[in-house]
Amino acid sequence: MTLLQVRDLQTHFATRSGALKAVDGVSFDIAAGEIVGLVGESGSGKSVTGFSILGLIDPPGRIIGGSVKLEGRELVGLPNAELRGVRGRQISMVFQDPSATLNPVLTIGRQMQLALEAHEKTSEAAMRARAVEVLERVGIPDAARRLDAHPHQFSGGMRQRVAIAIALLNSPALIICDEPTTALDVSIQAQILTEMKALARDLGTAMIWISHDLATVSSVASRLLVMYAGRIIEEGPVRDVLRAPRHPYTAGLIASLPAHAVPGRDLVQIPGSTPSLFDLPPGCAFQPRCTYAQAGCGVMPNLLREENRAVRCHFPLNGSGS
C-alpha cells in the first residue's frame, strides 16, 4: 500500500541571481513500513526534499509545484495549522546533529511533553508514561529517572536516541531521517542503524533515510533513490542498484566507496565537482563529469522506468558495477 506519493515536486529558492531549483521535479512512492534511502552529494536537494514533504521550507524557499500525498491526502498547499497536525503525528523527522536539535535548557521530559501536547493534551502522568515507554523503546536505560535530565547530560549517541524517541512519540507512519548518524562515532552509528531498522520493522514505521553516505544507507534501506542536482537519477532495490548501477554517477559513487579501495592506493574519485545549481549544463546535469558522455547528452533525459528500476540517462550502463 502506498503511504506517501510524491509527484513532480519542485522547491525553488528565490535569490538575487534568479531561482535556485533545489528540487526540480522529484517523484517517488513510499510503501507503508518501507525504508527508502535517498542518496546524493551536499547540494543535490535531498534534504530540501525531506523538508518539502513536511512543508518546512523557510522563505526565500517555496514549493512551487508538484504534489505530496500522504495516504491520499494532498499536503502541498495545506494551511499551516493543518500541516502542523501532520507534523510529528503522521510524519516526523530526525536531524543530523542531536546537540543542535534538542533544546539545551529544557529537560528531555519537558521537550517530550511539548511534542505530545502539540497534538493531544492528556494528563501529566499519562505523558510521562508515554515518554518513558518510548525512551525505553530506543534503548535509554533508567528512562523514568532520565526524564529530568538535560540534553548535555547524555552522550552523543544517547542524545540521538532521545531525538529519535521524540520523533516516535506520536507513533508516526513515516519518519524522515536526515543524516541521523553522520554526527556520531562510527561504532555508535552501527548501533543506531541496527536499532532504527529494528524499530521500523517492529512498529511498521516507514522511513526515508537521507544521507550522502551510500554505505550507511545501503545497510538500512531496502530501496534506493539517487539524487543529483535536484533530480532523481536512479532508483531501484538496494541490492540491484549496488550490484548493477545503471547511471554512470551511481556507478562512480559505488566505485568511490572506501570498501572498494585497494590498500595503499588513492580512493577512486568521480572527476570534476558538483555543479552549481545556478549554472547547470543543458541536458543531463552529470554530463560534464561523465566518462560516457556523447553528443545526445545535451538533451535532458527522461526517467526511464522498467520493472522496479528507473534511470535518468540516455546511455544507461548495462553490466555489473565496476
Partner: peptide, 28 residues
C-alpha cells in the same frame, strides 16, 4: 534559524509554543 526550532516545528509544535517555550528560554 537553529535546528532546535526546526525540530520543534517538525514535531508539530505551534509557533506560539516555540516562541514562548523554546526561544524565550534560549535568549534569556
Amino acid at each position: 534559524l537553529t535546528d532546535t526550532v526546526r525540530f520543534a516545528r517538525a514535531a508539530g509544535e505551534s509557533e506560539w509554543t516555540i516562541l514562548t517555550r523554546h526561544v524565550l528560554r534560549l535568549i534569556a
